[in-house]
Amino acid sequence: MGRCEPRIISLCCLLIFGCWQAAAVEMQVEPEVNGVVGDDATLRCTFRSTSPVTGRLSVDWTYRPVDSEASHSVFYYQEQPYTPTSGKFKGRAVWSGDIRRGDASITLRDLKFSDNGTYSCHVKNPPGDVHGQAGEMQLRVVTTVTHSEMKILLAAIGGAILLAIVLIVTVASIRACRQHRRQRTELEKNPQYW
């Protein structure tokens, strides 16, 4: 019994150390992204790793269409971006992330209706962070901006115009007051013009 105890303790230590070393990468993505046909859409994916980022870190983006369970590769990164050389994302999926800042984002160019679906971002940072859930988001491609987006845009434009008008009126009022004060001062200095 005395000989087994050190082995059991060693085994427990190895298990605890192994579990601690195999921590998961924390992922953050927007749950839903809306895009307009023909425009570009950035699929934002940020991560935090408990291990230092090394050249072994990899980012794997996959796509699952709305009407299918099969996943397709979209983009791969390990030390450098590997753009797709074939398939529907060839020439359209580009790297827009910065690994050192925990950013694994990509941009899809020239959106099409067939791009609707679920996109998954999976980051691995061996040897420590190799497990964890992929960040998933839904991309919804529409023909035009939605009403809520249009309202926000109109409110921003209206606010900018209103601010410009207020600034112009304020500047004109200040100038008119200064000119009026200057004329009054000149009249007080030269009473012969009365």
Rank of each mutant, 00 (worst) to 15 (best):
R181D: 11
I106P: 07
L154P: 10
R101M: 08
Y119V: 05
W20P: 01
H180E: 15
C177S: 15
P81M: 06
D115M: 07
S49H: 01
T143Q: 14
I161N: 09
V145K: 13
V29W: 00
G55N: 10
R178T: 09
P52S: 01
I165H: 12
T170D: 11
Y193M: 07
S10H: 09
Y193K: 06
S73C: 01
E5R: 14
R175V: 12
R184A: 06
W95T: 00
M137C: 00
L162Y: 13
R101Q: 14
F75V: 02
E30H: 09
G2F: 15
S51N: 05
V25K: 02
F47S: 07
L14M: 12
P81S: 08
C19Q: 03
K151Q: 12
M1G: 15
P191G: 06
S86V: 03
V142R: 15
V37N: 14
E188I: 12
V37S: 15
L14D: 02
D60I: 00
D39K: 10
E5G: 10
H122L: 14
T46Q: 00
A176P: 05
L111Y: 03
C177Y: 15
S10T: 07
A160M: 12
G35E: 01
L11V: 03
E30A: 06
T85I: 13
E188A: 13
E26I: 10
T146N: 07
S73K: 06
V66I: 11
N116W: 04
T118Y: 01
V36K: 13
A23I: 02
I161G: 10
A22E: 08
I106R: 03
P81Y: 02
F113N: 12
S96A: 12
L108H: 04
R64A: 11
I152Q: 15
D110V: 01
E79G: 03
Q80V: 00
L162E: 12
T42C: 02
A172F: 08
A160P: 08
I174Y: 09
E186H: 12
G38A: 04
A176F: 15
S51I: 09
M27L: 10
C45N: 04
L57Y: 04
Q133S: 13
F89K: 04
T83F: 08
P84M: 13
V142S: 13
I9A: 11
D129P: 01
S105I: 00
V59R: 01
S105E: 01
